[in-house]
């Protein structure tokens, strides 16, 4: 693994057992994350973005769960680690922030004692020192009146304040990687703005990498250096953020962008829609998962799964439209 790679995910697959058989929720995704940068994992509900991240850090515990591939974090494969080894990494080297902070905190204990517990477990800090450090962390996350908050219970804080407290807890041990799963989805737009700004500031001062899971393309545009677009359990496109928005290569990415209302949009035109729905992941199609909804589909798309192909500017797209033979034929056709 090269020096400047913090996280390298290769061929990650997740099959989840249910009463109706296995759901092939994640079907082989690959990406790398460099230290201090932000990668956004974007897609609609059910595309597998949250499940992949939960699988990476061992948060999926369903009996009979099938995981494949590897997740190298600082040269160690998280999927092969013992529970105890994983516990020393999670919460210490990898911090996590979730959509619903209220359910991530223990409702019966104060904010301060929960942050202090993290510090005690991972750093061996005494409770008294932990509470002092908790106050400092809350202040760093710009939570108003941090001294008072340390002694408060989760239900006493608003959604925005709790999200700051959760970020403070995730950062307690100085992680190299922060995983943020829809961190602002439940928040109002002005509060979202505050939290996104805070994450950017913290990333600058602490130099940590952020893996951001979101469905909101505007949040992606604000936060990400690189973007991975997921559809039906696969990565369909991966590119630098400016390239992705300026020249999306995969038809799904293009459709998603056109369906998102934009400031300069002409309001007399109907919004683009994506007809149909994603494929059944109990029995994934043998060809491209987006084929039935794709306006540019060809015969091969139904029969054979497209490979991940280079799409210029270090971007890749899982689409036959990027195949060299197709591009050559199209180029010849245009002459």
């Amino acid at each position: 693994m090269p020096e400047d790679t913090l996280l390298e995910v290769s061929g990650l697959g997740v099959d989840i057992p249910t009463h109706g058989g296995y759901v092939h929720a994640v079907r082989g995704i690959d990406f790398t994350l460099r230290p201090g940068t932000t990668m956004a994992l974007v897609g609609e509900s059910g595309c597998g973005k949250s499940v992949s991240v939960q699988a990476m850090v061992g948060l999926l515990a369903t009996p009979g769960l099938r995981l494949s591939g590897s997740v190298l974090f600082q040269q160690r494969d998280l999927l092969q680690l013992e529970q105890g080894q994983l516990n020393r990494i999670r919460g210490a080297r990898i911090g996590m922030v979730f959509q619903d902070p209220l359910s991530a905190f223990n409702p019966t204990r104060t904010i301060g004692s929960q942050i202090a517990e993290t510090l005690r477990i991972h750093k061996g800090m005494s409770k008294a020192d932990g509470l002092v450090e908790a106050r400092r962390l809350l202040d760093e996350c710009r939570l108003s009146e941090p001294t008072k908050r340390v002694a408060q219970y989760p239900f006493e804080l608003s959604g925005g304040m709790l999200q700051r407290a959760m970020i403070a807890m995730a950062l307690a041990c100085g992680p190299e990687l922060l995983i943020a799963d829809e961190p602002t989805t439940a928040l109002d737009v002005t509060t979202q703005d505050q939290i996104l700004w805070l994450l950017q500031q913290l990333q600058q001062t602490r130099g940590m990498a952020i893996l951001l899971i979101t469905h909101d393309l505007a949040v992606v545009a604000r936060m990400a250096d690189e973007v991975a677009v997921m559809y039906a359990g696969q990565l369909v496109e991966k590119a630098g953020v400016e390239r992705l928005f300026a020249a999306p290569a995969h038809p799904y990415t293009r459709a998603l962008l056109r369906a998102t209302p934009h400031g300069e949009m002409i309001t007399d035109q109907p919004l683009e829609t994506i007809p149909g729905s994603p494929p059944d992941l109990f029995a994934p199609p043998q060809g491209c998962g987006f084929y039935p909804r794709c306006s540019e589909a060809m015969r091969i798309c139904r029969q054979r799964m497209p490979e991940i192909l280079p799409a210029g500017d270090a971007a890749v797209s899982r689409c036959w439209l990027q195949h060299p033979d197709y591009l050559a034929a199209r180029g010849a056709g245009n002459d």
């Binding site: 703005d193 545009a221 990400a224 934009h262």
Partner: peptide, 8 residues
């Protein structure tokens, strides 16, 4: 405060 889907 409303982010827009345009990284530039």
């Amino acid at each position: 405060s409303n982010p827009v889907p345009d990284p530039v």
